[in-house]
Design a protein around this nucleic acid. Structure first.
Lengths: 207, 207
DNA sequence: GTCTATAACGAGATAGAC
DNA sequence: GTCTATCTCGTTATAGAC
């Protein structure tokens, strides 16, 4: 098939990005070099520069691809009806990254923000903006639909949730204990859950 | 005074750490070099190596001093009676760092964790452990005293709070908007506040 | 305690052959 | 599209004079 041939012919850039992505999620964008990718892929540094002329270009491509993959994942979750379940699926996206001993690429890049090429800084903020908008919409839908509860602006609540997930990831990875993340995620989601909140309300009124 | 003379005589290591600390909080531990410190301090790289033989030693000293300073700050907060206010003061420690365009040193190092010398990894976890214990104790006191409310283990709640604060800091700094942090912090603390929680409970029962 | 000088290495990047 | 070879620069670190 032509598609397969083309895919095979253009496989090298994708494989480069695969390796670079894992290294960036593990050591940070400034923590790996062209030499690291080259040795792992079995080609020379010069060949890497043919595909990605500069590291800044590679980094931007990394972010764009990651953002697209994230879009696909979010779209898949869109099919879910229940907003509460949607959020649990969303949180599990983070967890899947963590159990592979990686940080969220964008959380990692956020830490390195001030050292990144401007083009990467722009793309990183774009990623967070999209992410935040998706979560905010999900929260708003859930509140309107009567499955979620939170106060104030949905965007603020979305920021609190993503901040909690990113931070929990950061800390859990330092301990090599993904369960630390899971516990925090569960707690964050529980607070948004109307069903659980109602239980808590009842308990209070009984007291 | 002898103390002053001694302080002046041993001022160089402290000034080195001051600069290194700011650079580490801005660019990361791997984001600055001895040359950066040397040029800013007006001495040579060789002189730096006299005070801190290797960068790993410098990094560990950085962490130890930061941890001590944090202890002092926490002890100062201890004087506060109200647990809710105590937590607000705690959160404002983070905010004070952020408004100076810095990341929490330990949040930054957590991102770089896998690239750090083992001695720094150990010290970093020690810092988080102490931090977590302090917050957990504060939460427990507040719950017992009837000013705070949360479910389950205090340690879990403490981890959720610190994760939220660290993550919010990370994201706020990428946008150069400290208000993003403040909004998330306010939300996190509000959820722990019994007074506010009671209001919410009342509102629910009215509905 | 600070200096000059230098070692030893790794980084990103380029030229030009195949 | 990949290679060899090389350049230039920045990095941590050391030797030895002052």
């Amino acid at each position: 098939m032509d598609a397969d041939i083309d895919a095979a012919a253009s496989a090298t850039p994708a494989r480069i990005l695969d390796i670079a992505e894992r290294l960036a999620q593990t050591w940070g964008f400034n923590g790996f070099s062209y030499a690291d990718i080259a040795s792992e892929l079995g080609i020379t540094k010069a060949s890497l520069h043919y595909h990605f002329a500069t590291k800044a270009i590679l980094g931007r491509a990394l972010l764009l691809r990651y953002s697209e993959k994230f879009d696909v994942a979010l779209t898949a979750i869109e099919a879910v009806r229940d907003a509460s379940l949607k959020l649990r699926r969303y949180a599990s996206l983070y967890e899947q990254v963590l159990v592979r001993d990686r940080m969220c690429l964008c959380g990692m890049l956020a830490a390195e923000y001030s050292t990144l090429p401007v083009a990467m800084q722009v793309e990183l903020r774009r990623f967070f903006d999209k992410n935040e908008a998706w979560v905010a919409r999900c929260l708003e839908d859930g509140r309107a639909g009567g499955t979620l509860t939170f106060e104030g602006d949905a965007v603020d609540a979305a920021r609190a949730l993503t901040a909690g997930l990113e931070g929990a990831m950061l800390l859990a990875r330092s301990y090599g204990e993904p369960t630390r993340f899971a516990a925090v995620a569960k707690r964050l989601l529980r607070e948004l859950d109307l069903a659980h909140s109602a239980v808590r309300t009842n308990r209070k009124t009984v007291n």
